[in-house]
Design a protein around this nucleic acid. Sequence first.
DNA 1: AATTTCACG
DNA 2: ACGTACGTGAAATTA
Length: 311
Amino acid sequence: MEPTLKNKILEYRKLTKLKSTYVDTLPSLISHRTGRLHASFNQTIAATGRLSSSDPNLQNIPIRTEIGRKIRRAFIPSNKQDWIISADYSQIELRVMAHLSGDKGLREAFERGEDIHASTAAAIFDIPLAEVGDDHRRKAKEVNFGIIYGISQYGLASRLGISADEAQEIIQNYFIRFPKVNDYMIHTIAFVQKHKYVTTIRNRRRYIPEIDSKNANIRQNAERMAINTTIQGSAADLIKLAMINIQKKFDREDLQTKMILQVHDELIFEVQANELERVRRLVKKEMEGAIKLNVPIKVDIGVGKNWLEAH
DNA sequence: AATTTCACG
DNA sequence: ACGTACGTGAAATTA
């Protein structure tokens, strides 16, 4: 098919975004002193307790398109004998939801090591796991995002391009199959209505006064913020503890490895060849064991000569 | 200075 | 009557 004008405009914007934000800008920000990029990692900006990165933002380096991946490939170690290690938590926010809610079905899916979007599809569409197709899985993935974000029938409907009634039915099916997730959401909303704040797994608080708004939109938005904050904020607690413990070990064991980036559920390291295997094991252990949950935590580790390859 | 758009988790 | 998913930051555009 001939691309439409609209598609051409979107394509143009995609390319100029990558050029202006990354290709034209990042090289000029390389320090004359160190020959490297240095960002700020802000600890008191994100309301959920996540870090944020600025000047430049190194938490939004492209990866989703082929041309974007060429930019990520440019991130390499200072010394070309060295390696990049990337360690990322697998489905951490859904695991946190499984932990906080205690839902049996969700916990068992993780204990069996299942593809969580596929097993969600099997549950909500009431079909055997073996019969889950790409379209079922894609829809279930959107539902799982919705769970983390504090789902609404309208949000899910617009994502899936279906009616609000159809979305409502999918959500109802989800809650029938994962009832304690429903209980958890109801409990969290009751808590925020009473206290005007919610807490994370390590007791960080976010105050949400909008829960008392007489505007229904603002109020429902506050409910979603409350649910999402317990999940996103608890995952932030987990990776921050892991970062502290990992650096302590590096110091104690006199390792030269440098922790260079954090991207919410991922840590990036610059590692000498002779430390590679040791660091791999150490990082995996500290990340998976930072906080004991009642579901397994899985960390995937990759090694490469640049950030893209390390995935 | 505020808004829009789009990059990431 | 409204217009929807959570959390960010940077560049371009609008006003």
